[in-house]
Amino acid sequence: MLSVVEIEHLTVQYPDVKALDDVSFTVKKGDFLGIIGPNGAGKSTLFASMLGLHTKYKGTIKFFGKDIRKSKDYLKEIGYVPQKPIFEKNFPATVNDVVRMGLRKESDANKIDEILQQLWIHELSKKRIGELSGGQQQRVFIAKALVNNPKLLILDEPVTGIDQQSIDLFYSILRELNSKQKITIIWSSHDLDAVNQLANHVACLNRTLFFHGESDEFFENDELVKQYSEASMQEHMHHH
């Protein structure tokens, strides 16, 4: 099976702390990988390195078999949904504007409509992005990630601060993208239950990689589950 992502011995040293220490894992085509770990575990550093935003790392990151240091072309094949997109509240851009921003050529308007419908934001297409709720905005950014026909979606804890109904809808959309449209997904999350339901692979990250394998294998390991749910909970409490 074709590898979509191969990470070998990835180490990131910040001046005062080692954010990632010798992390290696592979993501195959069709995988739905849930990355779990407490805040400060290095998830954001991992994503920033994978997306070419952080380049001072040791080790190798390959997308579709090619080292990302050599070419940025791989970025065209992936869709990225940030944790909380930051933009000016009054930015004069409608949902339609946002979804089309940065597209190299005029995408098929029907296809964009279809994606907006699939994500239940079709009726909002003429509204300004700043007028939407957090959950609606999140769906706009998923739509945006999908218009380029990505082979891989990367999502960074994308349900922070969103209501439960939107989260449920969001999860069902992710499941469908992975199972029906065969899009490979890498998703970082605090929500172990959701990872259990959605992901078929799990990676536990806390500076180093403590576990990487099939989802069932992880959830059958009571010790690991306990450790990671506690760690997440502690961080969660601490965070509030």
């Binding site: 990225y80 997109p85 946002v98 597209l103």
Partner: peptide, 17 residues
């Protein structure tokens, strides 16, 4: 579209190449 996207959110624009 490139001007607009990098004005809207620099990091996301970067990540989209």
């Amino acid at each position: 579209r490139q001007l607009l996207y990098s004005t809207f959110n620099e990091e996301q624009a970067k990540v989209s190449g």
